[in-house]
Design a protein around this nucleic acid. Structure first.
Length: 364
DNA sequence: AAAAGGCTCAACCGCTCTCCC
DNA sequence: AGGGAGAGCGGTTGAGCCTTT
């Protein structure tokens, strides 16, 4: 048995507010305040509205100093950071953004920011960030949301038995696809980590007519998209000649990717905020030693893609821990010939898994 | 030009929390 | 301590606008 409704739904107006209703509500509240009783307010104000509707209209639209639209990059970062810290607690998140309402932040997240995140265009997430006033954030009801909750996920490609500390051969075993995410290690990787705390973007590398193409998207508004065909062959050579190198995109919230052509040559794409300087990887791989391709931190990263075998997989790192796609909240594939249909992508990957293991892992 | 599909966001719903008697 | 009522919150909806075909 449910709770009694707050008002008679048949006797109150619903739907969009008219300018007249808005001005009536504004005038009343400016004169009398809410008196701490929204339920009684509409009758006193002469509005044929539910008290909850009045409250919502005032808080989300009519009260002074409300900002709408045009979220700034800083606001993006705050929202994303707080979301990872506390989950969808929109009112708390909004309380850290002057002039923003919980409804606005929620809508912005659901319609735009989540997509930006998927595209790798947002985020500088730092574990030390603490925008939250702890007084407003009672531990009692605190729930943290794992990044994988950020996004719908239907593919999991957990690198199940691999360890990333093996320096001689790369034991990236994608032994089975499981619906359960599997942590492959919880220890920090035993090698240097380059970190670009400013960078966030995305990258992809594909093979077209047996030629590697690398594309990058930068957070730099002047270099939103660029490609680095010129560096590919040189870098591919470096990659092939390195029997035990770690290739890291080394950025926070950025990404890296690899492509493998039919002749088993490879190319690597990386993104960070320094755009072209490290886009071909040359600036970041020289000092590193190890055995696998990876991406650190929160970003979309580490996908390994081979269009000839129609597969995609990879390893993600978050807070220097190896995690699966699903744990990273990134278990999707938007690669052209996998399509946006996540379920079919999963089927494709699953079907081609064995071939994928052979062709790709042998590169490292 | 029209239809279909996608997107946005204000508004609603129903639940939990908090306060007060 | 228990219960009722209002406030607050997050999830969801759907009308209207925009874009694509």
């Amino acid at each position: 048995m449910g709770r009694a409704p707050c008002c008679d739904k048949t006797k109150v107006k619903r739907g969009p507010w008219s300018p007249e209703e808005d001005s009536t509500l504004i005038r009343f509240i400016e004169t009398h305040g809410t008196a701490g009783n929204w339920i009684a307010l509409p009758q006193k104000a002469g509005l044929k509205r539910c008290g909850k509707s009045c409250r919502l209209r005032w808080l989300n639209y009519l009260r002074p100093n409300i900002k709408h639209g045009n979220f700034t990059k800083d606001e993006d970062e705050i929202i994303c950071t707080l979301y990872t810290q506390m989950g969808s607690r929109w009112s708390l998140i909004a309380s850290n953004l002057p002039g923003r309402t919980d409804n606005d932040v929620k809508n912005y997240w659901n319609t735009k920011l989540k997509k930006k995140l998927l595209a790798g265009k947002v985020i500088s997430l730092t574990t030390t960030n603490n925008y939250v006033n702890s007084n407003k954030f009672p531990e009692k009801s605190c729930h943290r949301t794992n990044p994988h909750d950020l996004l719908d996920s239907s593919i999991s490609a957990p690198p199940s038995s691999s360890t990333y500390g093996h320096h001689h051969h790369n034991h990236l075993h994608f032994s089975s696809f499981s619906s359960q995410p599997q942590m492959i290690s919880s220890s920090p990787p035993p090698f240097p980590i380059l970190t670009d705390h400013m960078g966030y973007g995305s990258s992809s590398s594909t093979v077209v007519n047996n030629t590697h193409e690398i594309s990058l998207m930068s957070s730099d508004p002047n270099h939103q998209y660029f490609s680095h065909h010129d560096h590919v062959s040189e870098f591919s050579t470096n990659l092939k000649n390195s029997s035990s190198s770690i290739f890291t995109s080394s950025q926070e919230g950025g990404s890296s990717s690899v492509s493998v052509s039919a002749d088993n040559s490879t190319s690597l794409a990386m993104e960070n905020n320094n755009n072209s300087l490290s886009a071909d990887g040359s600036a970041v791989h020289e000092d590193l030693q190890g055995g696998i391709l990876m991406d650190f931190s929160f970003g979309i990263g580490g996908p390994i893609y081979n269009e000839f075998i129609n597969s995609s997989s990879g390893i993600w790192f978050q807070d220097q821990k190896a995690i699966s796609h699903e744990e990273a909240g990134l278990s999707y594939c938007y690669y052209p010939n996998l399509g946006d249909d996540q379920s079919s992508s999963y089927a494709d990957i699953k079907q081609e898994q064995g071939l994928f293991n052979q062709s790709v892992i042998n590169q490292y």
